[in-house]
Design a protein around this nucleic acid. Structure first.
Lengths: 239, 239
DNA sequence: CCGATTAGTTCCGCAGAATGGAACATCATT
DNA sequence: AATGATGTTCCATTCTGCGGAACTAATCGG
């Protein structure tokens, strides 16, 4: 199980988590490794270009891992197709729009275009959230056979009313979109995107401040979202 | 130098480069490693969530590395400040706008908002290009003391007229912006962003199809770019 | 200004992890 | 069914990565 490999990623994640350059001792403390071990692995990571040492001797991550991953993301068919639609959706609604995919029991934010007046709280591109707690996630789960198991696993760690959520999912299946209700102050509307009859593994969503959201406005957003989803599904199918 | 660590990143990069799931043998062949070694390291990478094996047994990268790096990027001060300005610049110009930073002798594209009618060539977010070959890169180099050495290193591998470029840089320094001239069909305009009197390590740029670009339009773009740069510099300074 | 403390780096003997060759299993193809 | 290619497991060998400790360089406090 390549201990050094595992440790190197631990260290890299430790560097990335810290919002500022870390000291060797802190990294050693946080990872529970010997200083000399950390020092050697950091040396390797620096040599590989994944970490760097600033003038003061502190260590920080480089963009190398991100560059690596960005290639993966931007070459994902779903991303390439969605990018244009996402932007169009933003243009017509002027609200914050996001593209997410399902990864395990989480949704991962792949891309986001924020409204001119940004919302107070924001999910970052590259961040995760438990699928059953988000509009996007519910939109996808509603059409997935494994929804119940996902919901149950998430419920096990974050108190969640499983039966209520399952009925909500069946509503979502009928309506074609999901609403978030968990984060106060902002409402999200999510719609799943599926290709070729397979269970959906991506979703579009619109988020807007709840207070500003009249019923009429909400309906307009839903309509725009569903229309974009329809066109995007079509585009995906004919590839 | 932690051989296993180094090899694991080789394998990960190999997975990321391949645009589709790779077979074990191919990875072994490409990396020059033994099959059993690749197999074991891939097992480790899978266990760590950095790779996965699909139903057919092929291996592919996950988004793990990207998620890791996205946290680094989105918490970079320059990114956080620039995001809003970039979007504003796109709104006023309706053209493709980018944010780049200097990394070694390259520029790295951190963020990009593409025009409704996308240009044929596109640089991807997360991709690199030699700084002296791009408008953004020249805009930054013009104000950096180490410009000459960068130019010379790049010239060594891609035939480049060093004296001509150096004089161009001094023009850029006077004008405050740089023009690309290397990729036919598309013109880019770059402006460096510096904070606190330090040499710039970030730049904004606008790219538009050359044919559509009248002199008047070009001047308008330059003005918009310089104005955005000015406001962004101001925002950076007062942090 | 000088000990005391803490952090960073280097060294080195030892354990055991990683290595790679080969055998085995699995799958596709004819 | 036989062939070939590929994925996986096994195992003896060895060299790598390990961590304690020593050394050096900062930082701090009195």
């Amino acid at each position: 199980m390549d201990r050094a490999v595992s440790r190197s990623f631990d260290i890299l994640e430790c560097l990335a988590r810290a919002r500022q350059p870390s000291r060797l001792s802190d990294i050693a403390a946080e990872t529970g490794l010997q200083k000399s071990t950390v020092h050697r692995i950091l040396g390797t990571l620096c040599a590989l270009g994944h970490a760097r040492q600033d003038e003061t001797g502190r260590y920080g991550p480089t963009l190398r891992a991100w560059e690596l991953g960005a290639g993966v993301v931007t070459s994902m068919p779903i991303y390439r197709v969605a990018a244009g639609f996402l932007q169009a959706l933003h243009r017509t609604t002027a609200e914050t729009v996001s593209l997410t995919i399902l990864s395990g029991d989480d949704v991962v934010y792949l891309e986001k275009i924020v409204a001119a007046r940004p919302v107070r709280f924001y999910t970052r591109v590259g961040s995760r959230a438990p699928a059953p707690l988000t509009a996007s996630g519910k939109a996808m789960l509603a059409f997935r056979p494994d929804a119940r198991s996902v919901v149950e696993r998430v419920a096990a760690v974050s108190n969640l009313d499983v039966p209520a959520l399952m009925t909500e999912l069946s509503q979502v299946r009928q309506r074609g979109y999901a609403l978030s209700g968990y984060s106060p102050g902002v409402t999200s509307i999510g719609a799943a995107v599926a290709a070729g009859g397979a269970p959906p593994d991506a979703a579009l969503s619109i988020s807007a401040p709840t207070e500003r959201l009249t019923a009429r406005k909400r309906d307009a957003l839903i309509e725009a979202l569903l229309e974009t989803r329809a066109r995007m599904t079509e585009a995906l199918d004919q590839r």
